[in-house]
Amino acid sequence: MILVIAEQRDGTLSRASWEAIAAAQHLAAGAPVVVGIAGGDIAGVAAGLAAAAVAEVVAVTSPALAAYTADGWVHAHTALIAEVTPTWVVLPHTYQTRDFAPALAASLDRALVTDCTAIKHVQGQVVFSRPMYQGKLAADVRVLGEAPWLVTMQIGAFRADAAVRGVSPAPVRTLEVAIAPSAIRQAPEAPFQEARQAVDLSQAERIVSVGRGIKGSEHLPLAQALADALGAELAASRPICDAGWLPMERQIGSSGQTVAPKLYIAVGISGAIQHVVGMKGARTIVAVNKDADAPIFEVADYGYVGDLFEFLPALTAELRKS
């Protein structure tokens, strides 16, 4: 039995849940899959999940689960795992999973493999691939110790539309769990967005994005000149915004904006997954990086391997020629 822990917020299913279902179906290789979903008012999401070709959907509810808390989710899923007795528990590697899954693994005292990009069946053994060293290397790993084993899947590793749908809806069951209010130590407030974004990069047709390779804010005019010559917006990886060289609203990635321009030029950006998820939908991607093995070349259509301080002025000059 394989258990998928799906994710919702305010009764809306997170897309990554379908990716986790696809991963679980691949891992199961025919064995039954059960989907669990926790929350307050989740009948609608549970019914939606029943479209998947799975043995059943279990809606885990309690008044204590109305809002997400790490403690609430650990209690709910401990109860769910005791009920379903899975060998594997599959989750999407979202920020919410990062917040509670390690505590769940700790309370079960079982292995947790995070951020997996692939699942392989090798000689009767399940092997997971995951990035290490900021994506410079990948590792094939296996779990040790007793089941259940927990595994979280990198966003985008499996396609949501690869999840097999059933011919008829799967049965939905409700699991009421008793959680004492005192067992929940975190008091959450409502999620909010920082002041309205002044720049909406999602509408930009062309983006020049700078990373730590730019070395200092004094070099930003080089990138701005290229952006001007292209009629592009300037954006950045997280460290550039962390350092205050560009405002946060120009950050691309999982904690910043997601963009899909016609052209994305990544300058001195290594291509960590948290950056790539925000820009891999661009139609044409150009990477400028002095390291030929930088992960950004995984997603680039065109690459220049070399010094950005030589290439940027050359490219700007070339564009100005015509």
Binding site: V113, M132, A138, V141, D293, E298, D301, Y302, G303
Partner: peptide
């Protein structure tokens, strides 16, 4: 240990990048 690394490698490229 709860995890065992079986091998480390440079990730295989899935997209063909045209190097200029």
């Amino acid at each position: 240990p709860r995890l065992e690394v079986l091998s480390l490698y440079v990730p295989e490229k899935t997209k063909r990048t045209e190097i200029l």
